[in-house]
Simulated assay, not measured.
Amino acid sequence: MANPAIITAVVVALFASPAFADDPITNPLTESATWQDLRPDILGDAPLADGAAIISVDAPYRAHDAATVPVVLRQLDPSLPIKKATVVIDENPAPVAAVMEFSDAMAPLDFELRVRVDQYSNLRVIAETDQGLSMSGRYVKASGGCSAPATKDPEQALAGIGKMKLRLFGEPAMSTPRREAQIMIRHPNYSGLQRDQVTQLFIPAHFIDHMEVWQGEDLLFTVDGGISISENPVFRFSYTDNGAEMLTVKATDTDGNSFAHDLSKAAQG
């Protein structure tokens, strides 16, 4: 009879191995006919380099929740600030999830957002630097993210629309005044593919299409988003603090609403 201790050790070793771990090595981009069709519309004839040395993209191999998949972008080459990043989810109904532009204060880039993934898909990020365009990404196993039911009924969701919250992490040091912040925006970001759980009718698409984040008079970054950005969007990022007392967030949505809030950094303590 096999030794139970040996069996236990083998099982533990197997589940601790890279084949079972949520390791970036296990989910590189795969060959995609869809991307070949999308590329001309997104990039035109622009050359595209391998971004493995420019930007890292972290996303889970198997998403916990297809409606809120975390995606982390990090600049790898300190000499090449990333000015713009386009997030593309090949198999989503609207593949371009977000187009983001970054000021110098965001370098080196360390940025997280949450997206919907509708079916097993490549999730790619196209980064723009002074050297041109380069691409990196991950293959994500998730399904149903764009049609997943909203967490609140439409009346409740719209009641708090546009509310915002700021969280700051740590204090900037005098030598390196970098800060980490998180901005949360209350918005259902309806994809147009979700059903009202009472009427079973489709809820019309209604989402934040543009957002700007400022510190004082200086623009930090902008986000132009679509239906693939998650409900109640959350953005976490690092930036160089210029000493302004407020972070100001301005946003618009597809129903013509405008939201603007001054979020006090002092209140965060």
Results as ranks from 00 to 15, higher is better:
G226E: 06
D196K: 02
T129S: 07
S136A: 05
S103I: 08
T30Y: 14
I185A: 01
I185T: 14
A66L: 04
L123I: 12
M100A: 08
P24M: 02
E180R: 12
V117D: 02
S230C: 09
V140Q: 04
A2S: 11
L247H: 05
L73S: 00
D224Y: 10
A5L: 13
S79M: 11
T68D: 01
E101K: 13
M211K: 15
Q215M: 05
Y190W: 14
T34S: 11
D58P: 03
R124L: 10
W35L: 11
A181Y: 03
F237L: 07
A205G: 07
V72M: 12
K152W: 03
I89E: 03
M106N: 02
A98H: 00
I161L: 08
A53E: 08
F20A: 13
N27A: 08
A16Y: 01
V57Y: 05
P233D: 03
A59V: 10
S238R: 09
D110S: 07
K250F: 15
Q215I: 04
A267Y: 15
R62V: 12
D224W: 15
L113D: 01
I183V: 13
A63N: 11
S143G: 14
I82L: 09
A2P: 07
S32H: 08
D50R: 01
R179E: 10
P93N: 08
L166V: 07
L123Y: 02
A16S: 14
K141E: 10
G243N: 09
